[in-house]
Design a protein around this nucleic acid. Structure first.
Length: 553
RNA sequence: GCCUCUGUGGCUUAACGGAUAGAGCAUCGGUCUUCGGAACCGAGGGUGGAGGUUCGAUUCCUCCCAGAGGCACCA
């Protein structure tokens, strides 16, 4: 459909790549072009030529010049009907494409730190990263997810020192206890900064392979990973790999040598640094010989390039690390690793308090698990109070509450543009109506329910004789945008474009639903088809966002 | 001090340089002899400030104001 219009437009305007897009306001038609304004050619002349195009005449009911010179295309009812048939025929594949065929993208996301609780701060990376993963997969890319666990570095020196100091045995260690030790250290170190030397010495020992240190470290990793996996299960997130920073120990010497050989390393105050033209220098080796996360992130690129040769590596990591990634990417370029390869840092904003950052060091964080269980319990209360939960068993209600509650939290995060900060507020987080996951889930479930209730399961309709009202036409023009929205959301690394779209589609459907009968209404077959297609798009869209749709709710 | 990001109705927010700045929450007023009311319809109210580029700026540029983050031995 779009290519027919595009082709006609190319001929009529004489422009190689005329712009053709979906107008924001559906009153302006199904497609719109600004080619007249951009090229300076009179819109009237272009439209005259367009009207002579036979292929175009078959699908378009009206071509109009509007506003400052937009050319708007209104599809005929028959064409809209045919589009709906296409959407239905594609079924679950509507929206997917082969755009990324043969290309690989690595996504680095979630990446929590070992020995710290999984805080709400990690929600963004985890949820946005997973959505990007699904988006790229839908576009036919080979996608590799890697959970770059923070399981190495001086922070472990801190813990090792604290554990030795306190005389705690491994069996006494829990994540809460570890976090306590961590907070306690920072408190003490503020008064006595020399403590850091002890911590660094411990990390140095660990890096040199000291067996006692390694033993304790392994334990810390195990305790944490077990805990993380529980959270991931709750969230319904599965990440392909979790190499973690420690994995790259063996690659360190190679990275350091490569940089030295290229003459990119400079000694400074006992440490080795890499300097850049327009960035502050980055530290490669500390004065005590231990490595830094700069070194480790370079090693990580080396490994990923060697293993997967990806076209794109996406880092879904907080914005506070922007400078670090700029340095890492700059160094990778100097090493020649970024040729024909895109290194992208999606720096998401913080989930923070009104006054500023949450800080593990200060111990003022919010546990993700607490948020998820609160959301689930609030969803549960609504089920009890509302009509919609009737006839569900207790177990079903529990499952629905989980899908709805956790879906709401994820959606809340995803519906914000990644770059903005989110102010943490218990009340705003738990939105279960309006622009929210439950609204979309509800709409999808309701669509299914109608289909089940219809005695007539026949979805065939004759698009040639189709008469559409405004509400129906809007739903269809919503449905046909889905594939482009997925592309835009992936390209811009903005899952919020998909949440916006899905919400708009659900609104259009609900609007239609409230004004027209489906079962036993006019055009019943057509309306059932419309209902089916909407439900499917909503479900697959939610699926891409990592949000599950219950059977009933 | 330097660098990065952000600033849109009371609150939370959306918008490849385009049309009347689009929603949700809250407020007020409506819809129901319901195919699922976690719904639908309507109302009020908004681009931090000053310039500039452009046929056209929330979007790009400059300056200012406000907030957040970062600036070598944490990650």
């Amino acid at each position: 459909m779009k290519d027919v219009i595009l082709k006609a437009l190319r001929i009529a305007s004489g422009e190689q790549t005329p712009n053709l897009e979906f107008p924001e306001n559906e009153d302006f038609g199904d497609f719109t072009s600004n080619v007249a304004m951009v090229s300076g050619k009179p819109a009237k002349d272009i439209v005259e030529k367009l009207k002579k195009d036979k292929d175009l005449a078959e699908i378009v009911a009206k071509i109009e010049i509007a506003g400052p010179g937009f050319i708007n295309f209104y599809l005929s009812e028959e064409a809209l009907g045919a589009e709906l048939e296409k959407v239905l025929k594609a079924g679950k594949n509507h929206g997917s494409s082969s755009l990324g065929e043969g290309k690989t993208v690595v996504i680095d996301y979630s990446s929590p730190n070992i020995a710290k609780r999984f805080g709400i701060g990690h929600l963004r990376s985890t949820v946005i990263g997973q959505a990007l993963y699904n988006l790229y997969q839908t576009l036919g890319f080979k996608v590799i997810g890697d959970n770059h666990l923070g399981d190495w570095g001086t922070q472990f020196g801190v813990l090792l020192a604290q554990i030795e100091d306190s005389g705690l045995k491994t069996q006494d260690l829990t994540l809460d206890k570890l976090e306590e030790l961590y907070v306690d250290f920072h408190k003490k170190a503020e008064a006595d900064p020399k403590l850091w030397d002890g911590a660094r010495a411990w990390f140095k020992k660990l890096e040199e392979g000291d067996s006692a240190a390694k033993e304790i470290w392994k334990n810390l990793v195990e305790i944490s990973v077990t805990e993380f996996n529980r959270i991931y299960k709750l969230l319904g997130v599965k990440i392909d790999y979790a190499y973690g920073e420690s994995f790259y120990e063996d690659y360190m010497p190679k990275v350091i040598n490569l940089l030295r050989e290229k003459g990119l390393v400079k000694k400074s105050q006992g440490a080795e640094i890499v300097e850049f033209k327009d960035l502050p220098p980055a530290m490669l080796v500390k004065s005590d010989g231990a490595t830094t996360y700069f070194t480790r992130d370079l090693a990580t690129i080396l490994f990923r390039v060697g293993s997967w040769d990806p076209e794109i590596i996406i880092y879904e990591v907080g914005m506070e690390q922007t400078l670090h990634f700029r340095q890492v990417f700059a160094a990778a370029k100097l090493l020649g690793w970024a040729k024909d390869r895109e290194l992208v840092h999606i720096g998401h904003g913080l989930i923070r308090f009104e006054h500023g950052k949450m800080s593990t060091r200060r111990g003022d964080t919010v546990k993700l698990e607490d948020v998820l269980s609160e959301a689930t319990s609030r969803a549960g209360k609504i089920i009890e109070a509302s009509e919609t939960g009737r006839g569900l068993s207790d177990k079903e209600k529990e499952e629905v509450a989980e899908a709805v509650g956790i879906g709401a939290i994820k959606y809340f995060d995803l519906s914000h543009h990644p770059a903005t900060d989110i102010i943490f507020d218990w009340e705003k987080l738990f939105l279960l109506e309006g622009n929210s996951a439950p609204y979309l889930q509800y709409t999808a479930v309701r669509a299914d329910s109608v289909l089940k209730k219809a005695k007539n399961a026949d979805l065939d309709f004759n698009s040639k004789e189709l008469k559409l009202n405004k509400e129906e036409a809007r739903v269809i023009s919503g449905l046909i945008r889905f594939p482009e929205v997925i592309i835009a959301a992936a390209k811009n690394y903005s899952p919020n474009l998909l949440t916006n779209y899905l919400f708009g589609l659900a609104q259009k459907f609900n609007n239609f639903y409230n004004q027209h009968r489906i079962i036993d209404g006019e055009n019943e077959n057509f309306r059932l088809a419309l209902t089916k297609a909407t439900g499917e798009v909503l479900k697959s869209g939610l699926g891409i966002l990592g949000i599950e749709t219950p059977e009933r709710m």
